[in-house]
Nucleic acid binder design. Structure first.
Lengths: 343, 343
DNA sequence: TATTAACACGAAACCGTTTTCGTAAGGCCG
DNA sequence: CGGCCTTACGAAAACGGTTTCGTGTTAATA
């Protein structure tokens, strides 16, 4: 086993001091060319690489960023992660991922673990439970310590920090308008039961669109489903009891499941009922009929979040103090597919 | 901004030495109860938490594990990751994720970045390019340094280390037999064009099953598709020119796309053609007809990989040297859904 | 020849811990 | 009263780097 070689080893072997080795490897002016050549050759030969941990301790910079997401087996979050990872990697940063599993406690524990020097900053989307409890002390603690924080998608107004979101309400509004313009009159909304900021905003957009076009907002056409549900009884009942000609769903799973149900009940999609979802994942693309959906452009969000974070991390203290927090809004796009009739 | 407090601060404030503070916080016998109370109270008050980096440097243990996967927007890899993360977190480890993007170079760079002290061990699935080039020097380098390595799913025989895989060939064989038993005679195989170990093994299993049941292996019934393809022309041609009554696909995307195509061409699924895929993702579950598929149990794989790695990491040097490398085979299960006729 | 500047390098502090070892003070015993 | 053992703590080394500052040697200059 070839143990990792350190400056000390090189110094001893070449009979010079550690400082000389360190400087020689950085091509310092202070060191004679002879010595530099000797040291560099030796280092190359034994494949010397400085120890990241030691450097982190010295610089008080880890070149790691912490990402906390509610779930990782989730198309949207993985696309965001991809955007983060790409940008971070290009900037020489590594990414530590923690999954909160939608749990407040796990979110807190993970943050605390990472906040003790492991990372230079956080990028995160709040867990459902955190949003429900409205308790953000763990975030406040971190920002008060001067650790940069960027929130994305699932954000809160309670915390002052950089944020990256889509305009959920606007996207929902446009999606709803798309349905209205194609002649739909009784548009249902399938949303989540648990409290999520984004769901609330999408619902607001839906209501706005209906009102703006003089359509009544019918509460009985709003179906609230558990985030992860097994059987279809409640949606089935909804299909049986309600009369509607289009559905806006706050995610693609709701949409695809609803389409299946509609088809099983003999409704033609999109002729009898048309559907629009959120999140442009594999399901939207490959289900049949394929799903018209709001593309949240996760990769762009991730990249924007990483940009904001790293710029804050690398900023000198003075300018950082200016507290010029940004909220970046990533544009969305409605991707038209077979689940809506082309008007 | 409340800066992080260190042992030194506490020591200065309480007018004791750093060593005393350190020992007092660890409840050492050496320190009087009075002093311990004083120190602990102060530490709690100022929310002292030891600096992870300093501890890592001292212990030569980072409590980080490095995970390198070819892709993260990918159902199977995320389930594996979930398994890793859960187990690792429970054991007090954090996970640094790097995406090789199926590129050899990125894989090498990522490994080198992490190998210089950032992590205690690696869990990885090889990139397609690495498998094609058959170049594993970066892995060898890491293991020679004594850094534990666990390979999963995309593994190689060239490297001696722990491995976690499914029995791909057996799973493919069983899936094929399932089709044969339901009376299918001309079974096609849709596999990847690029060289992947797992695809090769699945193909072998497919061939074995046919031969075992006295069916001819028809090379023209094997379609090799690019890993990520846009348009369907080659599969379309295949559907037009070949005669088959079942298809085994090496992943769920190939399967779902093929099913769509079949339906568009007027074939009934599963009556005229039945399909079996690999990977039990959202697509398999929610497409219509839903897809019969081989569940690779990614979460179990991830957990097994993390178990193996952490046990090696925490093992004392002596026992580690025994070189008792394991290859764990995670059982697969064929999940029967609507794309095959129930026999 | 004395002064000085340039050169090339080393000593030491520092980042924040842990841990070994040394030691001052106090009490007990003979 | 001297020796010894506890008790309770501090000094210092160590982990692996970076960086500031000091210094010995040499060569150029006055």
């Amino acid at each position: 086993m070839k143990r990792k070689i350190t400056l000390k080893h090189i110094a001893r072997e070449l009979d010079v001091s550690i400082s000389t080795v360190s400087k020689a490897l950085k091509n310092s002016e202070e060191i004679s060319q002879d010595t530099k050549d000797k040291v560099q050759a030796f280092a190359r030969l034994y494949n010397y690489k400085p120890n990241n941990i030691a450097i982190s301790l010295k610089n008080k910079r880890t070149k790691n960023i912490g990402v906390i997401v509610p779930d990782i087996v989730h198309h949207f979050f993985t696309t965001v992660f991809r955007g983060i990872e790409k940008y971070a990697n290009a900037k020489g940063y590594n990414v530590i991922v923690c999954v909160s599993d939608e749990s407040f406690d796990k979110e807190v524990i993970n943050m605390e673990m990472l906040a003790n020097g492991s990372i230079d900053g956080f990028i995160m989307a709040l867990s459902a439970e955190t949003q429900r409890r409205n308790d953000f002390n763990h975030l406040r603690e971190v920002t008060e310590q001067g650790i940069p924080l960027v929130l994305f998608d699932r954000v809160t107004d309670e915390i002052r920090c950089d944020k990256v979101i889509i305009d959920d309400s606007r996207a929902a509004m446009e999606a709803t308008e798309r349905l209205i313009r194609s002649g739909r009159k009784r548009i249902a909304l399938f949303t989540t039961e648990t409290y999520l900021n984004v769901s609330a905003k999408r619902e607001a957009g839906y209501r706005q669109a209906l009102e703006a076009h003089g359509l009544p907002v019918l509460e009985e056409l709003i179906l609230r489903l558990p985030y992860q549900f097994e059987e279809e009884s409640s949606s089935l009942r909804f299909f049986r009891e309600q009369d509607f000609d289009a559905v806006l769903c706050v995610n693609e799973i709701f949409a695809v499941r609803a389409i299946r149900l509609a088809q099983q009940l003999g409704r033609r999609v999109p002729q009898d009922v048309s559907f629009v979802g959120f999140t442009d994942g594999l399901l939207s693309r490959y289900s049949s009929p394929s799903l018209t959906t709001v593309d949240q452009q996760g990769e762009l969000m991730g990249q924007a979040a990483a940009e904001l974070l790293i710029s804050k991390v690398e900023m000198e203290y003075d300018e950082n103090d200016a507290r010029n927090y940004q909220t970046r809004i990533i544009p969305t796009a409605l991707i038209e597919r077979e689940s809506t009739v082309l008007s």
